[in-house]
Amino acid sequence: MLCRLYLAAMHFNENAGRTQARTTSGKLRYSLHFPKAKKGGHTVKPVKSPPTHCYVHNLIAGVFEEIVPNPLPYMEELQKNPCS
């Protein structure tokens, strides 16, 4: 669960400042939403650019550069953990 929390935080931090998407002609994109709370009313929301996942490449590179060549310190830490 802790790892999932860390991944969610990294994903949010990387994608928090996404810009608004544009059409091919350069106009800003918007979408209509019809929430139940407005009982038939609508709201207009900006469409964000697609999210990125660059943090995944950094994690994989870190695993293969640091943990795979010398896994002993990490194995010792795992063995200390009473939950595993």
Results as ranks from 00 to 15, higher is better:
Y6D: 10
P82S: 10
L72K: 15
A16N: 06
T24C: 00
A21C: 00
P50A: 08
H11I: 09
L78V: 05
K48V: 04
M1I: 11
P46K: 08
R29V: 01
V47Q: 08
K80W: 00
Q20H: 04
K36D: 09
L32N: 10
T23F: 05
Y30P: 03
G26Y: 11
Y55C: 01
R18N: 03
G41F: 09
L2M: 06
P69S: 04
A37M: 08
N15G: 06
S25A: 07
Y55N: 01
G17Q: 13
N81H: 02
H11C: 09
N58T: 15
S31P: 00
T23E: 02
K39S: 09
P46G: 02
H57I: 07
P50C: 02
E65L: 13
F12V: 12
T19P: 00
P69M: 06
N13P: 00
K27E: 06
L72V: 11
I60D: 02
P73F: 02
A8D: 13
Y55L: 01
K48R: 11
P71C: 04
I60W: 12
H57S: 10
Y74P: 03
G17L: 13
K27F: 00
A61R: 15
E14G: 09
L5C: 08
T19H: 07
H57N: 13
P35L: 10
P51R: 09
C3E: 13
F34W: 14
S25C: 01
K39M: 08
C54S: 14
C54G: 13
P51G: 02
N15L: 12
S31D: 04
C83M: 14
L32D: 05
C83F: 10
T43W: 10
A16T: 07
G26V: 04
C83I: 15
V44F: 08
H33Q: 14
Y6V: 15
P82I: 05
L28Y: 05
T19G: 10
V44P: 02
V68M: 06
F64W: 12
A61G: 02
A21D: 06
L32K: 14
